[in-house]
Structures are given as structure tokens and as C-alpha cells.
Design a protein around this nucleic acid. Structure first.
Length: 421
DNA sequence: TCTGGGGTCCTAGGACCC
DNA sequence: TCTGGGGTCCTAGGACCC
């Protein structure tokens, strides 16, 4: 029953994606920005070496970045999403027992037979992913997910070549004593400082503490981490389940005060969210729509959102747009400078569970067919080919999110495909 | 001028049931 | 003087992750 977990993590994923299609970025300091070019959310090793922090507001570092000739890219999510799919598909060829944990990380679970030659096998995975996708990965190995996570941070250090195996007990002792509690997966700064208050400062001390006591102090989540550090697996590979909630929200490129523009934005976000919902074959049972002013401003603030329950589960974009724009009518107040809006589709359930409403007499068929046609056309010819009529105003340019440093959509827009592919 | 956008899980407490 | 003891479901809020 000796199982082994591997955590495969793409190195500086967004930067690596940009480098695949723009080799001039290789060996240079590179950063990738969040939406609206707001924060720095990915850094190449060279940029990390310049001490540019994760999550830093771009405008504060702009001068520094120029002075050090750091290359800057706006985030290009269609590209990263597509590259992520390629990496995950490649991984699943080696081991179908995988959990996609985030856009750039996946856990693999190996059984004992695989273990005899595990180092060789893992090296082969790493090399193949790079050969097939151009994305470099690091792989950490351990008897539990938590230990595999820790192994992965070691794998990233230059002396280990991208692979680190933390399955030997003696090695665990040595390694864990040098890991701060806060850097353990699942332990934040807040819990870290609570642990330090009772004399637990590193991973070895947490491992050797009493799980019962930790549970009383911080709850079952941290208790499980103690067991995981001991090598007792509490967290298994999660099957890929459909999302229970789907959210789409954005900051506007600049503040907006007229209701019609806000309705156009919420319409756009609703379309996106509904597409995602249908792509996992689910329907929403309730919807949350919210509107916010800029919390960093000293202007008068107004944040409000409303949850609407639906009589029957719904995946029809037109119906949900009607709902979300109506909610905007309800919560919008003139005279405020709004900065962000969003929609969450909640309590998603599989679409094959038909829960007919006694009064509404729902027949999904015509709506489902219509949505399928729209989705397949948009997949084929690009997002937004078929869109709702109220979308796209003349103000689009003015309020579209800022992306001054955007790379081409190399992989998802076929008229711009580079020859390298 | 400028500060991201997603998600998940757990717990406590109230409503309701037998 | 006595005034049960469970269960389940739901919700809000808090915590964490990338």
C-alpha cells in the first residue's frame, strides 16, 4: 500500500507561457501583470532576483522595472488556459490518476509497482512535458500531498534540478526542521503566528506535536496537516468534480457612473459565466450579482449585491442576463463612481437532474439546443462570435480593461498562429 | 491616474423534525 | 419542582489556496 504523491508545478507559469512564443524573453527578467495591469502576478527567476515582490502594485514598481529593463506583459488568460490544458493532457498520458489543482499545478498518485523506478519515470515526465509543450516543470515527491508540496519547493532550488524526493524518513527530519510553519501548504500567516505562540515554529515541530491538541486549538484542517507531515495521508486525489460555483467579475478600466454601461459589463460577465457553466454541464439554482465602488478611493462608497434564487435550475444565458440587468436596476445608485461588478452562479447541479417546477412547466429542450449552437460556434470561430444584442457599445474602448503589454493570442486565434507551432 | 480574479472547505448557530 | 435529547438541513462567515 505504499503510495507516493507527486506535485508537478509549472515554473513561473505565465512567464514560461510567454517565453514559449517569444524566445527573446529567455534569460531576461520578465513580469506578468494582473487584469487592468494592476498587480505583478508572475515573475521570472531574474525578476525574483531583483526582489520584485509577488502581488506588488505595478504603478509603484514601474520606474524600478524600467530602470532594470524588465520585460512586462499583460496577462493573456486565453493563452495560459490553453497551455495549461496541453500540460495537463500530457501529464495524464503518464498517469491518469491525476488531480488538476490549479492552472499550473497537478498532483499525481503512484502505486507501488511504479515506485521501483520512480526517479527515472519522473525525470521522463519532466523532460517530456518540456519537449511537448515548452513549459518547464518541477516535481516534488512524498508519501502525502503535504510532503509532496514541500518537496516541490525544494525541487525548485537550483541545486536539485527540478526533482526532489522526500519519501525517506531520515531526510524528512532534516528537511522539515528548516521549513517555517507559514510555508507549509494550508498554514497562512495568521495560523502560523498562532502556532508560534505555542512554540511551534517549523514543520518538524508541527509534525511532532499532538494532533488532538492542535485540533482543539486550530481545528480539524490543521490536525490533518500534522498527520500529513507524519506521512499519514489524509488528503487523497480529488476527482475532477464540476465547480459548485462559478464567478465572473472584473474591475472596469476606469470608474463608471452610468447605469447602461454597467449593464453592458454585467451582460458580458454573465455570458462568460454561463459559458463556463454549460461547459461543465451544470445549471445554476441561484445567482449573485454585485456592484462596488473603488475601496482604495476616498470617494463615497457603495457596495451591494443580491442573491436571487431560481425556481428551476437554469443555464440559459438570455434568462440570466435578464436577471442580472434587473438586479443592476435594483442596486445601482446614481452619483457613485463604480469600479467593479460581477456575477456568481451558485449551487450548480448537473444538467441531467431535471427538477421540473410545478408552476413554471419548464421545458429545457429548445433553450439547450440554442445554447449548444452558440457555444459550438464560439468555440470554432472565437469567443464573442455570437453575442447578445445589447453587448458592445461605442464606449468599449474607453472602458475596456487596460492591457497595454498584451502578447498575441498565439494558441487560440488561428489567424495569428506563429510559424513556430 | 494606477491596488486581480478566481475558488474550496469548515464551523457555529438557528430552524425544524421526531 | 419540573420543563429531553437527538438528528438534519441551511446559512453566514471565516479561514485557506493559486
Amino acid at each position: 500500500m505504499n503510495t507516493l504523491f507527486a506535485l508537478v508545478d509549472c515554473n513561473n507559469f505565465y512567464v514560461s507561457c510567454e517565453r514559449v512564443f517569444n524566445p527573446s524573453l529567455i534569460d531576461k527578467p520578465v513580469v506578468v501583470l494582473s487584469n487592468n495591469d494592476g498587480c505583478i502576478i508572475a515573475r521570472s527567476n531574474e525578476a525574483k532576483a531583483l526582489n520584485i515582490p509577488m502581488g506588488a502594485p505595478f504603478h509603484i514598481y514601474k520606474d524600478f522595472i524600467n530602470a532594470h529593463r524588465v520585460k512586462v506583459h499583460s496577462s493573456n488568460y486565453p493563452l495560459y488556459g490553453d497551455m495549461s490544458n496541453r500540460v495537463m493532457n500530457s501529464l495524464s498520458e503518464f498517469n491518469p490518476n491525476l488531480e488538476i489543482y490549479s492552472i499550473d499545478e497537478a498532483f499525481l498518485k503512484f502505486n507501488q509497482t511504479f515506485r521501483t523506478n520512480i526517479r527515472y519515470d519522473v525525470l521522463k515526465i519532466k523532460e517530456s512535458i518540456f519537449k511537448w509543450t515548452g513549459v518547464p516543470v518541477s516535481i516534488g515527491l512524498g508519501p502525502t500531498k503535504t510532503l509532496a508540496k514541500i518537496a516541490n519547493t525544494l525541487a525548485k532550488k537550483n541545486n536539485y534540478d527540478g526533482i526532489f524526493d522526500l519519501s525517506s524518513k531520515t531526510q524528512q527530519e532534516e528537511i522539515l526542521k528548516d521549513i517555517n510553519v507559514e510555508s507549509i501548504w494550508g498554514i497562512s500567516k495568521r495560523w502560523g503566528s498562532k502556532l508560534r505562540m505555542i512554540g511551534i515554529g517549523n514543520a518538524l515541530q508541527l509534525r511532532d506535536s499532538s494532533p488532538r491538541r492542535i485540533r482543539q486549538y486550530l481545528g480539524v484542517v490543521v490536525e490533518r496537516i500534522v498527520y500529513e507531515l507524519q506521512g499519514v495521508a489524509c488528503l487523497d486525489i480529488n476527482e475532477i468534480l464540476p465547480k459548485k460555483n462559478i464567478m465572473c467579475s472584473r474591475s472596469f478600466g476606469s470608474t463608471v457612473n452610468d447605469k447602461d454601461s454597467i449593464k453592458k459589463f454585467i451582460t458580458e460577465y454573465t455570458i462568460r459565466a454561463c459559458e463556463k457553466m454549460r461547459s461543465q454541464n451544470t445549471r445554476a439554482q441561484s445567482v449573485y450579482i454585485f456592484l462596488q465602488t473603488n475601496r482604495f478611493n476616498k470617494d463615497k462608497q457603495h457596495n451591494e449585491g443580491i442573491i436571487i434564487g431560481l425556481n428551476t435550475p437554469c443555464s440559459d444565458t438570455a434568462k440570466i442576463i435578464k436577471l442580472s440587468t434587473t438586479v443592476i436596476d435594483m442596486i445601482y445608485r446614481p452619483g457613485y463612481l463604480y469600479q467593479k461588478a460581477g456575477i456568481m452562479l451558485l449551487d450548480l447541479i448537473p444538467e441531467n437532474i431535471n427538477q421540473y417546477d410545478f408552476f413554471e412547466n419548464t421545458n429545457y429542450h429548445p433553450s439547450d439546443i440554442r445554447m449548444q449552437v452558440i457555444d459550438s460556434l464560439n468555440r470554432k470561430f472565437g469567443p464573442g462570435t455570437i453575442a447578445n444584442g445589447s453587448l458592445r457599445s461605442n464606449n468599449k474602448e474607453k472602458w475596456d480593461s487596460k492591457k497595454h503589454y498584451l502578447s498575441p493570442r498565439y494558441t487560440t486565434q488561428w489567424d495569428e498562429l506563429p510559424h513556430a507551432m
